[in-house]
């Protein structure tokens, strides 16, 4: 009986120690991930953690976002386009463009964890009708 109690205590101690170690390891791992996968300034300001955009518990399994994921916060393609309505007159609204209308996907220009790219600039000089892509 004494040995049984000793073995059980040892198992409990090992399990507890492992849990603490895993918990301690998880925090630095998250911090490292957040340092590696930094957010753009407008989202960093909101102090978002990974799970605000990505689903699941395992960062290794996080998938890149689709436009529809972005729109769960940003509303709709039309709403995003309407914010730049003043650009419609000259057909320079990137969210409602001459070429793509409302059908352009966010990630064609916007990127959360790397520098964004301006798709329009592949053909046009945009200095006088567009800011930097946020």
């Amino acid at each position: 009986m004494k040995y049984l109690l000793l073995i059980m205590s040892a198992i409990v101690a090992i399990v507890s120690f492992s849990s603490v170690t895993i918990a301690e390891e998880k925090e630095p791992e998250l911090a490292e991930l957040m340092a590696e996968y930094q957010l753009r300034p407008h989202h960093r300001k909101l102090k978002f953690e990974c799970v605000m955009c990505h689903e699941g518990d395992d960062p290794e399994e996080y998938e890149p976002l689709e436009t529809e994921n972005c729109l769960t916060c940003h509303g709709s393609r039309q709403k995003v386009a309407d914010r730049l309505k003043f650009m419609d007159e000259n057909h320079t609204n990137p969210h409602n463009s001459f070429h793509d209308g409302l059908d352009l996907d966010c990630y064609e220009c916007h990127a959360e964890h790397e520098e964004p790219a301006n798709l329009c600039q592949e053909c046009h000089t945009t200095d006088n009708w567009m800011n930097e892509v946020p």
Partner: peptide, 28 residues
């Protein structure tokens, strides 16, 4: 954009345009 229907920037642009919309020449 709350409170101004997402249209404040557009309305302000009518008074003081952000862009000249000129020189939108194709670079290639």
């Amino acid at each position: 954009t709350v409170g101004h229907a997402g249209q404040l920037r557009t309305e302000l642009n009518k008074l003081k345009p952000e862009f000249s919309f000129s020189d939108s020449t194709e670079s290639h």
